Computed example of a mutant assay.
Amino acid sequence: MNNNQAALVNEAFELALKNILARVSASGNLQSRPSVDDDPVLPDTHEAPRKLAIAYSGGLDSSVLLHLIHAFSVKYKFDLCAFHIHHGISPNADDWLAHCEAQCRQLNIQFDARKIAVVKSARNGLEEAARIGRYAALGALCREHRASVLLTAHHQDDQAETVLLQLLRGSGVAGLSGMDIQNVAADLLGNASLEMARPLLAASRAELAAFAAKNDIRFIEDESNADLRYARNALRHTVMPALGQSFPGFQGRLARAAQHAQSAQRLLIALAVQDLQDCQDGDCLDIRQLRRLSSDRIYNLLRYWFGSRGVRMPSTAWLSEMLVQLLEAKDDAQLCVTHADCHIRRYRDRIFMTPKLDATGLSAAPIAFR
């Protein structure tokens, strides 16, 4: 990578982050000032101090992000902090923590870390349990340090892997949408006002590797990334290289496909909101109104209904069977269909959800709409 290519990576990152911060500002999480040129609006640095935070694992991607955001924060006078999550899974985890702390000290970046205990369960395997614990810890660190935006180092290859994984799982439009450039993940981060953003989403892994080499950026190698037992690693090391030989640049095309799916998903959500307004009766769904919709619109509405209540998305087969039972039961039937997270009940012409009883026998009240 020559100097011009490195400058292009930096310029693309800076433009992406400016756009992200402009949207955060428009949402009210940051205050902004009028732009004096054609650049996106940046938050007013004369207001109360704001912090940008990054999730810093010490690997290639987050190490490049650390150096890019450091230059950005110095140029535009943002406070910056880097957060590292120690999972305790790898025997090298202590060394990684020490490496990250040393790199931040060298750049004069505020650093903090959390150690978490990762325990897999029947509901979540080790990889998913680590992900949930990591983001919960990152959200807690952002609250503690009053950071309004959390940046992650997801890039174009990550997006392509996500789309391929979802496709292989038979996911619908929502799954094929991949990762947004920014979003609020209140359940994952435990903070409804914290924005999570991915300013490197348009950059390829090869570009990041070249940038790291050009700028002599030190990073660690996580040995688990070579473990082919993990689906994402199997894709990364076997399937994607084969695709790259026959379809060079496929990652960018999959990223565009994800953008098309995101647009379609927004339309589906808008339709579901409209249908929910027509079918909702308090905390229940009116079966008579539901029957007026086409089957596709009913499924779309029910998926939105589940998602709006924080209930895990059921499989298509389960959803189809549930709908048959609820719609075809006799009018006087008091039907109950069990979901992993709740019960879906029918009483006369109404469908509603109730939580499962816990060990104390609480509570059977309907789950309220958010």
Results as ranks from 00 to 15, higher is better:
residue 5 Q to A: 15
residue 11 E to D: 15
residue 13 F to C: 09
residue 15 L to M: 07
residue 16 A to P: 05
residue 33 R to G: 13
residue 37 D to R: 00
residue 42 L to I: 06
residue 43 P to D: 09
residue 43 P to R: 05
residue 44 D to Q: 03
residue 48 A to D: 15
residue 50 R to H: 11
residue 52 L to V: 03
residue 70 H to K: 06
residue 79 D to G: 14
residue 82 A to V: 06
residue 99 H to E: 12
residue 104 C to Q: 07
residue 111 F to Q: 09
residue 115 K to T: 12
residue 116 I to M: 10
residue 119 V to W: 01
residue 127 E to P: 09
residue 135 Y to G: 04
residue 135 Y to M: 05
residue 144 E to R: 02
residue 145 H to F: 13
residue 149 V to K: 05
residue 158 D to P: 04
residue 163 V to E: 06
residue 167 L to M: 09
residue 173 V to D: 10
residue 187 D to A: 14
residue 188 L to P: 03
residue 198 R to V: 04
residue 201 L to N: 02
residue 204 S to P: 12
residue 210 A to C: 08
residue 215 N to L: 07
residue 215 N to F: 09
residue 222 D to C: 06
residue 225 N to W: 00
residue 234 A to R: 02
residue 235 L to I: 08
residue 242 A to N: 03
residue 245 Q to V: 03
residue 246 S to P: 00
residue 257 A to G: 13
residue 258 A to M: 04
residue 259 Q to T: 03
residue 270 A to G: 13
residue 277 Q to A: 14
residue 279 C to H: 07
residue 282 G to D: 12
residue 291 R to W: 04
residue 293 L to S: 12
residue 295 S to F: 09
residue 297 R to I: 00
residue 298 I to P: 00
residue 301 L to I: 03
residue 303 R to M: 11
residue 304 Y to E: 09
residue 316 T to Q: 12
residue 317 A to H: 11
residue 318 W to F: 14
residue 326 L to E: 10
residue 327 L to P: 15
residue 331 D to F: 00
residue 340 A to G: 05
residue 346 R to P: 12
residue 348 R to L: 15
residue 350 R to H: 13
residue 353 M to H: 03
residue 354 T to H: 01
residue 355 P to E: 10
residue 355 P to R: 03
residue 357 L to W: 01
residue 359 A to T: 12
residue 362 L to N: 12
residue 367 I to T: 07
residue 367 I to A: 11
residue 367 I to P: 07
